[in-house]
């Protein structure tokens, strides 16, 4: 078995790659993809600890997390559609009405 800390390292890496995408990408769809990456990093973390402790609830929980991620993406796509309708662009940096 691989030691748990390498799984944690992998999970941290995937999370930070997703975070990098959020911080630097301007396309809204890429934004959503990055969010997906972050969610999956959390899943890796769950499964890793499930293997560490031998308790299966971690893996079951990660299934639910996946289902929730899917639901969230569905709603997110809907929001992006509305955003496009209003601002004529999927660039997240153009939608800046709610500012000072």
């Amino acid at each position: 078995m691989i030691a748990a800390k390498y799984y944690l390292l992998l999970s941290a890496a995937v999370f930070c790659i997703g975070l990098f995408g959020i911080l630097t990408r301007r396309n809204a769809l890429i934004f959503l993809m990055s969010i997906e990456l972050m969610l999956n990093a959390a899943n890796i973390n769950l499964v890793a600890f499930s293997a560490q402790h031998g308790n299966l609830s971690g893996q079951v929980f990660s299934l639910f997390t996946m289902a929730l991620a899917a639901a969230e993406v569905a709603v997110g796509i809907g929001i992006i559609l509305v955003l496009y309708r209003n601002f004529d662009d999927v660039d997240v940096t153009t939608a800046t009405s709610m500012r000072w």
Binding site: I22, R26, T96, M98, R99, W100
Partner: peptide, 8 residues
């Protein structure tokens, strides 16, 4: 001015 409105 911190509230730029840009999500990123």
């Amino acid at each position: 001015r911190i509230q730029t409105g840009v999500v990123t």
